Structures are given as C-alpha cells and as structure tokens.
Simulated assay, not measured.
Amino acid sequence: MEDGRDFWWHDVVDPQSATHRYRPMPAEHPLFLLYTSGTTPVVDTWSQTETGSHAIRPLWRYKPLKAGSAQQPVDGIAVAIVDEQGEEVPNGEEGFLVITHPWPSMLRGVWGDEGRFYRAYFKQFANKGYYATGDRAKRDEDGDIWILGRADDVINVAGHRLSTAGIESVIGSAYDVAETAVIGVPNESKGEVVVAYVVVRGRSNHLLEGREDAEKLAADLKDSVSQQISPIAKPARIYFVGDLPRTRSGKIMRRVVRALETDKPLGGLSTLVDPGIVDRIRDERANRGAF
C-alpha cells in the first residue's frame, strides 16, 4: 500500500490475462474509476479507421469526465444521432450515429470498388448525404455522446430491440467475469433469444468444477441482466468457455460465436489469432453444456 493507493493492479486484473492486447473495460471497472477520478485520466474516445483520427473525445482539461462517454466531437467533425429516416432524435433516445458533413481526414473511397464505398457508408442515408458509421449512440441530458455498440449488434426479442453491448456490460461487471460475448439466436416464438458466452476470471475457475456452483453463477448473471435492463433481456442460455475467438487486435469475432451456436458455416478464419479456439469451444459446449 504505497503512494496512497488502496489496491494493487493484480487485485483487479486477472494475472493470467495480463497480455498487451485490447480488452474493453466497463465504466464500472475499479481501474477505470481510479484513473478517471484522479490526475491521470483514462478517456473514452471514438474513431474508426475510416475517420483517420479521433472523431469524438472528451475535453478533459475543461469539462468533467463521464466514465463511459466519449462526450463531444472534435473540431471540424459534425455528428448527429438519427432515426431510420435520418431525422435527429431527442436527447436520451438511441439512434444511428452519423457524420453529417465532410471532414479533413475522411476516407476518399475504396480502392478499385467505388460502388462498395457508396453502399457501405452512404447508401443508408443517401437522401441526407450522411456518412453512416454503423454504430448506435445516444446523447444524455447534457448533450454528451454515449456509444452503444454496432448497429448490427442488436437483438430483437419479442419485438424489443436490445443492445448486445448493454447486456455485455452488465454481465462483464460481475466480480467473477473476465469477458463475455452476447449474440442473438433465432427462436420460433420470440424471433430471437439472448445467448451469452462467458469467460470467468482465473481466480473463479473453481466455480466451474461443480455443476451446482456454475448454475448459481449463471442464475446470478441472468438475474443481474433482468434487474438492470429488463426481464426480456435475460439470457436464455449461458455457456462458460475458456476464451473467445478474437482477431490479433483483440476484437471478439461474434460471427464465429453465432455460427457455432446456430451450426452455420464458420466462414473465413484467417484473422483468428488462435484457430484452435473453435474446437475448444465446441468441446466445452459438449462437455459442460448450457446453463
């Protein structure tokens, strides 16, 4: 306990996962709270390869940080949050994040395929001329922007549109959980149901040794989602796995998880950092089953 700190790095980070790869950190994570409340800020920013620079980021020296919010667009970039018709939605409502005007570092096209450039980025809101980021977001009462996840990462359960990022945030905030991937799976009566693949922290692996402990952990996670979001968002099934399929940059490949769950073709796996993860997940599903 030195320099006034109340806990050490290894108290909040699983030592088995202390590799230098990208991992999402929930706004409730102790490290995030520590550094956003002190003199060394950790800030949320939003950008894409296509934007060429940060597009939304906090002015942390001049405005208090909000853990989890990227806050405001940088000078020279104009953004809006719109509905399916391209009309701006009120503060507090979720919508599509768009960039409304050209900006200095924007992409200029797709090499050898200008048609794809239009289809991927401008076709959705062609009547407005907006650049479609493919992300969903909302503004709070102060007008600050909160990124909610990819627009295609939305699950439709009995007519209710649910954000996978929101469900993952609730499950990922649990003490015993290191990481999770949430997907929507077709269901005859509800359209889709929520299914979660969960990686527990190394210190909590003992919970998976017995069926009873694993069932209790799964029940607790489902209850948390039900209470914090909605009973409709509660996962129908939870699988506990050792790791998730990811790219070399650390991005979870949810299409692979979805393909495993629905017995569909896996598609290209060349970007997987560990191709063997697919067979290991299959074995874990077969041996441990769902909860």
Rank of each mutant, 00 (worst) to 15 (best):
G4E: 10
R5T: 12
W9N: 11
D11H: 12
V12F: 02
R21S: 08
P24Y: 10
E28A: 14
E28R: 15
H29E: 07
P30V: 12
L34Y: 04
G38R: 14
W46F: 15
Q48K: 14
T51F: 09
T51W: 04
R61I: 04
R61H: 12
Y62W: 10
A70L: 02
Q71Y: 06
Q71W: 05
Q72E: 14
P73M: 03
A78E: 10
V79Q: 07
V82T: 00
V82E: 01
Q85V: 05
N91Y: 10
E94T: 14
F96I: 13
L97N: 03
V98Y: 01
T100L: 12
H101Y: 04
P102Y: 02
G109K: 01
D113F: 03
G115L: 09
K123H: 06
Q124D: 01
F125E: 01
A126H: 04
N127A: 12
G129Q: 06
Y131P: 00
T133F: 00
D135R: 04
W146M: 10
D152C: 08
D153E: 14
I155D: 02
S163I: 01
S163Q: 14
A165N: 13
A165V: 05
G166H: 14
S169L: 10
S169V: 07
S173F: 06
D176T: 03
V177L: 01
V177T: 03
E192T: 06
V199T: 07
G202T: 04
H206K: 12
E212N: 11
D213Q: 12
A214S: 13
K216W: 06
L217M: 10
L221T: 00
V225Q: 02
I229A: 07
I238L: 07
Y239V: 09
V241R: 11
D243A: 13
R246N: 00
S249V: 02
K251D: 04
M253P: 03
M253H: 07
R254I: 09
R255C: 11
V256Q: 09
L260A: 06
D263L: 12
K264S: 14
P265Q: 03
L272G: 09
D279F: 08
R282V: 13
A286N: 03
G289P: 10
A290L: 04
